[in-house]
Design a binder for these strands. Structure first.
Length: 551
RNA sequence: GGGGGCGUAGCUCAGCCGGUAGAGCAGCGGCCUUUUAAGCCGUAGGUCGCAGGUUCGAUCCCUGCCGCCCUCACCA
């Protein structure tokens, strides 16, 4: 079997590099301080200036001058420590009772509203923001240098809690300590940072400028924590298995290849942890799960990032029906702990009720509904239907084509949440066959909003069957399948693996759903982007039009 | 890879039929002790993504390239 369209995977593939060092798209030249730019050492472009907006220009220049003024005055613009405060939210919580209290708060300064002898700003930390009032009469030492501390700087403010005439909770500052000078201004106060490219490349700005973005990632953190809590509560052990693997497997996807120098060994970044986790079942670890990064060297889209986070769990003495219960249990847990309310989320313009139980539908029944009169196992009929649908069908294996027809006709109808179960064996190489019908397997996938969220099955534990499937896979090797049989895995099965139910869930997609995020890049802190290389761009342009062919 | 869209000041955006670019915010200078998108006066800030082409003249039209977004395909 060559094409396993299935497997635990979800999202996609990626480069091992952490998403990128931002080279702000706009820009002039020069860089501040030791430029981290390109390190070309020879050649005519040795001194090419990276297009990083220099901090010595424009607004940044003003800030740099303030910084230097502070230094000349003997002040450290980046002190190792400043008076530490408490979270702003705790102060706001029972503000009335704290009236008159003296507190210290730390955070990032917003814009300053200057009234001459009185100025207001807001101070923001991870928990919230509060107005700060700076009055000349309360700030004898700080007042003369107030202009050296400005919007976007990080500060520690000590003062007295009170209100303004309009009742706004305010920290009336009595002492201000600059904690870190910002050389670049914050984005515009009202619109924040809008440009999607800038938001992804400079996520650090996106995060402090757009509070809703921070909320999404806080939510993601909560989701992951509660996924752990759920499996922990059932006695699962969280484990970590190799990311560097000599033979990749457990899914159908192109891997990233790398090399270990000391061992002089080719290695792959894992496309799935599956085969190692099942070795643990052999070892007697009867309930295990792993939440970890997997890498697939393929396309990028709103649902696919080359590196993504996968949950896989395995439970001995369970089958796929039990796993279905686990999934419903997990969603019930997440609805209660993360979502709150009635368990409904808005996603891509529709509402979805994530409260279990979920619908269930047989794969072949769904296929028959959308393709009346076409037998999934009838090659000729499937081919006819594929032609009718305008699908490419030449040189495509029958079972693959049949699944293509399924995907073309059924998937978009799966608004769900719905469990699609009992998949044909030809597209389910790691799942156990149904005793009642050996053409299909004990396998299900969970769909929501036409998106595959989870994949599970009764794990194949017959080493003879498994070896045959591997051998056949190697015989039809392509770049999505390993070049050799994972002999060690077969050996492990020969020692006896208990019957087990396994599950894979794409954490990023789960977060998309629970956060109402339309793109996976909105739930991945640093999504993979093409590197912006000004020199390469210049080279390409230089050889482009006039001189070269029309290529 | 195909199709569509976008790229203008630090940020958010205008810029008509081709005539060498504007606003708000941020910045700088000034006034102001209750503002909260503070206000008022003044001021500075641009490789219009990059490179070519057409034109007397290009942010605008054409070509190539770079990057991002959407979409299809591949792929989960």
């Amino acid at each position: 079997m060559q094409v396993f369209s299935c497997m635990r995977g979800r999202a996609i593939y990626a480069s091992p590099r952490p998403a990128g060092h931002p080279f702000p798209a706009a820009g002039a030249t020069a860089a501040f301080a030791p430029s981290p730019g390109r390190r070309r050492c020879l050649g005519s472009r040795a001194f090419a200036t990276p297009r990083r907006r220099a901090v010595t220009d424009g607004i940044a220049k003003d800030r740099l001058e303030k910084l230097q003024a502070l230094r000349s005055a003997g002040q450290d613009p980046f002190p190792a420590r400043v008076p530490r405060g408490q979270p702003i939210a705790t102060v706001l919580d029972d503000f009335a009772s704290r009236h008159g209290q003296s507190v210290t708060l730390c955070g990032r300064l917003g814009q300053i509203r200057d009234f001459g002898k009185l100025r207001f700003s807001h101070l923001q930390d991870r928990s919230g923001s509060i107005q700060v009032g700076f009055q000349r009469e309360r700030l004898a030492t700080f007042w003369p240098e107030r202009r050296r501390v400005e919007s976007n700087d990080l500060v520690s403010v000590t003062g007295e809690l009170g209100t303004t005439q309009k009742g706004e909770p305010t920290l009336w500052a009595t002492d201000v300590v600059l904690a870190s000078k910002a050389l670049r201004p914050a984005p515009e106060k009202w619109h924040g940072l809008q440009d999607t490219e800038q938001r992804y490349r400079m996520r650090y700005v996106d995060l402090f400028a757009n509070t809703d973005v921070r909320a999404v990632f806080a939510q993601r953190s909560r989701i992951v924590r509660e996924v752990r809590a759920y499996f922990d509560s059932l006695g699962y052990l969280e484990v970590e298995t190799p990311i560097l693997q000599p033979i990749f497997g457990g899914a159908a996807a192109r891997p990233f290849a790398t090399h270990h120098n000391a061992l002089d060994m080719e290695l792959y970044l894992r496309i799935a942890p599956e085969l190692y986790l099942k070795r643990l079942l052999v070892g007697g670890m009867e309930r295990v799960y792993e939440i970890g990064r997997v890498f697939r060297n393929e396309g990028v889209s709103t649902r696919h990032n080359p590196e993504f986070t996968m949950l896989e769990s395995y439970e001995a003495w369970a089958d796929y029906r039990d796993v279905m219960d686990r999934v419903e249990g997990l969603f019930a847990h997440l609805v209660a702990k993360v979502l709150g309310g009635n368990g409904t989320v808005a996603f891509r313009g529709r509402d979805y009720d994530l409260t279990p139980p979920f619908q269930k539908a047989r794969y072949l029944d769904l296929f028959a509904q959308q393709n009346p009169g076409v037998d999934w196992f009838d090659d000729a009929a499937v081919r006819r239907r594929a032609r009718e649908l305008g699908l490419p069908h030449d040189g495509i294996a029958p079972h693959t084509l049949a699944n293509d027809v399924f995907e073309a006709t059924v998937e978009e109808t799966l608004q769900g949440p719905v469990f699609v179960h009992d998949y044909p064996v030809a597209i389910s190489p790691l799942a156990k066959r149904l005793t009642s019908d050996p053409r299909v397997t004990e396998r299900f996938e969970l769909f929501v909003a036409g998106m595959e969220l989870g994949n599970a099955f009764s794990e194949l534990n017959d080493p003879i069957d498994q070896e045959q499937r591997f051998v056949e896979q190697v015989a039809h090797k392509n770049d999505e399948t390993p070049g050799e049989v994972d002999v060690d895995y077969v050996t492990a099965l020969e020692f006896g693996m208990p019957p087990a139910g396994g599950l894979g869930i794409g954490i990023d997609r789960l977060c998309m759903l629970l956060c109402g995020a339309a793109s996976i890049r909105d739930v991945v802190l640093f999504p993979l982007l093409r590197r912006v290389d000004p020199d390469a761009a210049a080279d390409a342009a230089a050889t482009g039009p006039g001189t070269a062919s029309e290529s």
